[in-house]
Design a protein around this nucleic acid. Structure first.
Lengths: 220, 220
DNA sequence: GTCATTGATTATCGACTGATCAATAAAGAC
DNA sequence: GTCTTTATTGATCAGTCGATAATCAATGAC
């Protein structure tokens, strides 16, 4: 199969000009941007984004005024779509033990968040954009960690009305951060994987056990 | 003080050509590279490195064959000098309780590792260079986490001869990663700080307590 | 079929990048 | 003081970057 020859349906380069609806084209561009930025960071070139999206580079500027807008579109494409609204109900379903609920939650949560694209884009964003980090930190604290403390209180019959203190969040933050770091470690360990690992549920279980022990009435 | 005027000792630009020994000049260049790369990532330009080092850009290429060599010099300048040999003895000083030893160690360790330059360079390296990550992960595991498990075993009179299993490292890794993540969170929280925080020892204490509880004989 | 709309491309700009080379000048040897 | 060594600079190259303007052509309205 000599390189010079080119079949009619060569997958490498489709020279035909394909006209898409603005919404569809924009979605393809954003997806290409997400993939590239996750690999190379935000200094990935607009030309490479265009190449992956199968278009020419100037066309990007019909959909985004500048590169920064494209970066922000990649942000929201990944981070805003992270949270599944069903998780809120799951975390507060008091018919199940806290440990079961949060085991289910963290397995589902890490299935998304441990994907290389998510993790890498997250850390790139973190290093570059302090605002994104502050925003997502708030999400984790309000949606996951505070509910975890409250639900555990309720399970122990301590009442869940009074506010969660900063002090009570230290251990949850430690464990949540530890889990994130676990995902990162796996990511770099075996390049090209999907972010999965057989021992993920086991690590989550250990983290939750630490939290439960620490919050047990007879513990310090 | 008009901009056009320029005093004899203008700190902004010293036009005098100053001749340094190769070792001294190289050290200044590496320091400038470390600072810049920690701020902007490794796509920081060689011209900016030169500007911060107070030299012209071509001079860099007398000391480093290419930019990649400069990056690797920045790596070793920061990461190789992290470990204090005194820490090995500290961690194995069995005249003190394990919790005291590791409290002292982690306070000293995080004093270095939570500095913005270290943390940022670390995460940039991690995202770009899987080898560096693998290398340092090995350091943490062999120098910190395995000793932690062994010393705890000895303290409990369980014997420390047999090898530390992967399973036993899960909780130490969770807590170590949680601490690292804690440093990162503070870093982004208040830009421009030194990486310090008043509650750092308290968080370390909580992490160590979790480890001790988990390894206690009556715990699962 | 004809035409207007607009998605898409080609060509190109100025700024910046990593890197090279010849010319310059500071410091030590004598 | 003179000379040799070499640290340092100025000039410059080819390539790439983000972004703009003019041009082309696919699609739907009629």
């Amino acid at each position: 199969m000599p390189k010079g020859q080119q079949s009619q349906r060569d997958k490498g380069a489709a020279p035909v000009r394909k006209r898409l609806s603005p919404a569809a084209r924009r979605a393809e561009i954003v997806q290409a941007a997400v993939d590239l930025f996750a690999e190379t960071g935000f200094d990935g070139s607009t030309r490479e984004v265009a190449r992956r999206a199968g278009i020419t580079q100037p066309l990007l500027y019909r959909y985004f005024p500048d590169k920064q807008s494209l970066i922000e579109a990649a942000y929201s494409r990944v981070f805003l779509e992270t949270w599944d609204p069903a998780w809120d109900a799951l975390l507060q379903d008091r018919s199940r033990p806290v440990v079961d609920r949060f085991q289910s939650f963290y397995e589902a949560y890490t299935e998304i968040v441990f994907q290389p694209v998510w993790l890498r884009l997250w850390y790139y964003a973190l290093l570059r954009d302090a605002q994104v980090h502050a925003w997502y930190r708030e999400v984790v604290q309000e949606q996951i960690l505070k509910p975890m403390v409250r639900e555990r209180r309720a399970e122990l019959g301590q009442g869940d009305a009074f506010a969660v203190t900063v002090d009570e969040l230290d251990v949850p933050w430690l464990l949540h951060g530890g889990l994130l770091n676990h995902g990162l470690r796996q990511l770099a360990g075996q390049a090209g994987n999907r972010g999965d690992s057989p021992d993920r549920p086991a690590v989550i279980r250990k983290a939750l056990n630490l939290f439960l022990q620490q919050s047990a009435p007879d513990a310090g």
